[in-house]
């Protein structure tokens, strides 16, 4: 039983986060998700860019109506957020049933610390990947459209950062949901309903208050946030920080529920 040389104790949280990062980065699925997200965004940007270029060739005046922010945000809304949801759900639930979740708890027995580390690492990764893929989308659009359609760098930066923050919060939400539900399929299903299904149905209704309620769901509040109010297909009753707080609230609530489940249930 050779005594281990006691190294200076790094923070307990830092250790848990280092473990979660190794777990995340050592799965091919993680990098596949990033690759698929980037590819989807590029294909979307090229398709939309080519058709926009055609329209501008027919009617040069329409160039002034074109919005990089709107089109990129739609790519994030229809494609990227679901890739992030899938990735985070896999990270949160992929180890139930193969003993991996017990192994992680043996290394980091404090369940709150483990969940916090997992959420932080997944969210950090989703921020980086989300911002990068959004920037790639804007870049691809710009390449297809050329200098004839001006790009406002300030708006582009806001979209890139907004999408990064939103993807990070959605990832944290999915980690919370996944920890509570303990199944990949159930987590992705619940995420789809919150991001798209329920708010879409509310929008279908004729009643204005129901329609406005859609903005209380994370997918719609999110698109308002990263599109800076220019989503193109939907207008929330309120612009600005309220949408950021809505998304934040969903992430926090999901993590609290996940924590309660993780704490009270047998692993």
């Amino acid at each position: 039983m050779a005594a281990q040389s006691v190294r200076p104790v790094r923070g307990e949280f830092a250790r848990a986060a280092a473990m979660e990062w190794t777990r995340l980065a050592s799965l091919r699925t993680t990098w596949w998700c990033v690759g698929v997200g980037a590819a989807a965004m590029v294909v979307f940007a090229v398709l939309m860019g080519v058709s926009t270029a055609d329209r501008i060739a027919d009617d040069p005046a329409s160039a002034s109506e074109f919005s990089y922010v709107r089109l990129t945000s739609q790519g994030v809304f229809y494609l990227l957020q679901f890739v992030v949801l899938t990735l985070a759900a896999l990270i949160a639930t992929g180890e139930y049933g193969n003993g991996g979740s017990a192994a992680a708890l043996l290394a980091v027995p404090r369940r709150g610390r483990l969940l916090a580390a997992r959420a932080a690492v997944t969210a950090g990764f989703a921020f980086a990947a989300g911002a990068a893929v959004t920037a790639i989308g804007i870049g691809a659009l710009r390449l297809v459209l050329g200098a004839g359609v001006p790009l406002d760098p300030g708006y582009a930066v806001r979209t890139v950062l907004g999408a990064g923050v939103c993807m990070a919060l959605f990832a944290a939400m999915a980690v919370g949901l996944g920890t509570a539900l303990r199944g990949t399929a159930a987590t992705i299903g619940a995420g789809l309903l919150l991001l798209l299904g329920i708010p879409m149905v509310l929008q279908l209704s004729q009643a204005e208050w129901l329609s406005d309620l859609a903005a209380a769901f994370p997918g719609f509040a999110g698109v308002e946030l990263y599109a800076s109010g220019d989503a193109g297909f939907y207008t929330a009753p309120h612009d600005g920080p309220v949408n950021a707080f809505t998304v934040l609230g969903w992430a926090a609530a999901a993590l609290i529920i996940g924590y309660a489940e993780l704490r009270s249930r047998d692993a």
């Binding site: 280092a18 473990m19 799965l27 192994a103 043996l106």
Partner: peptide, 29 residues
């Protein structure tokens, strides 16, 4: 240290990465 019944690791991870993650989490060199 424990070996649990049927307990191993995520099938998509290498043996080295599995152990490295656990080493990092538990503060083992």
């Amino acid at each position: 240290g424990a070996l649990l019944d049927g307990g191993a690791a995520h099938p998509g991870r290498s043996a080295r990465a599995h152990l490295l993650a656990l080493a990092r989490g538990s503060g083992v060199p």
